[in-house]
Design a protein around this nucleic acid. Sequence first.
DNA 1: GCCCCCATCATCCGATCGGATGATGGGGGC
DNA 2: GCCCCCATCATCCGATCGGATGATGGGGGC
Lengths: 210, 210
Amino acid sequence: MTEPPITLLIVDDHPVVRHGLHGIFASAAGFEVLGEAADGVTAVALAARLDPDVVLMDLRMPGGGGVEAIRDLSRRNPRCKVLVLTTYDTDSDTIPAIEAGATGYLLKDAPRDELFTAVRAAAAGRTVLSPAIAARLVSRVRSPATTTLTAREREILRLVAKGTPNREVAAILFISEATVKSHLTHIYAKLNVNDRAAAVATAYDRGILG
Amino acid sequence: MTEPPITLLIVDDHPVVRHGLHGIFASAAGFEVLGEAADGVTAVALAARLDPDVVLMDLRMPGGGGVEAIRDLSRRNPRCKVLVLTTYDTDSDTIPAIEAGATGYLLKDAPRDELFTAVRAAAAGRTVLSPAIAARLVSRVRSPATTTLTAREREILRLVAKGTPNREVAAILFISEATVKSHLTHIYAKLNVNDRAAAVATAYDRGILG
DNA sequence: GCCCCCATCATCCGATCGGATGATGGGGGC
DNA sequence: GCCCCCATCATCCGATCGGATGATGGGGGC
């Protein structure tokens, strides 16, 4: 009995990568490449039209970042699974991509068989993660800090890290001291700390500062 | 008119490196290699006996670190110049070596001519620095922070970075809160900051924490 | 239209901090 | 023997912080 092939959309801004992936999957049994896109916006449009089972997506692309595209895709097309293929597993977009709805996260230099397995798993709705990403997710869950400081919060934390007292932070940002304190309270809650020194340390540890 | 040759002592724990340097200087006019040593202690003893003009010294050696040997050498034998030859210019011992009395600091992969020039300069009492080291020294001078926090100060700063209030730091270390504050005051002075948040940030920036 | 998040602001108050000042004992270098 | 640095401690006090509580307007998602 022959299963229907898993249909694919390949999204990457590098023609060489697109061609390479296309070739790998076209020459393997059980897969059908429906199309390619070079940026997130095109990908969303193409996915709506072609309705692929799995979208293989690069994260770093000019004109339409991958994370936004993933969010759009999984909202408009919930049946379609997004498998992120990236060069580095230390990418700061890792967690946001998964939060945006990516089903899996693989390194581009994975062997062919691993790619096939991952795509089949993704098509079946299963989650596929590289070990490094898995580990990071675990630690993320363990310290359930929302981590995502807003731009304003980061701005304030950066000033605090310079030793700026609240009153001066307020003056610099043209807001009241009460607002500064309010932001700091939110920062402490998100980073799960109790004072500015620990907030700065945690921010450095997580790459928010420095 | 023939100048008397510049006499050398070569100190490195790798026989291959010693042999290589020995060969380079023995085959060049104007230099005479008086001896070799494989560690700092032997180097100090040999230098006292042979009285070389210049000691070429590796920093990283088992049994008698280079920095201590430099300190001993320049104390006992002030006429003798120490030229540090190292593999990496990012070595954390760079600054200590110079503080200990090294006249110059060169990378091992410097071309032969540069070695000759450097040794002649060192023999004449001039300072020779690779550009990277020079830059680091400049930045060191610009921010005259003594940077060298004591072990106790680092211990306290580490606790502060975790958000520990002074009173708890005191309890953890079995000292009074007054002492904690005293240490913190010293830390602030050394790092040139005014509060714990900035101290933590600066410590991260300089690699003292994190 | 409702809800949530973000940025903004206000007031109150106990807790904590940081600066100033001064002091002691021990260890290492000159 | 003297000097300097380090670690230790004490007291005083104004400045700053952080927690609690409550409120408003605007933007985006459902």
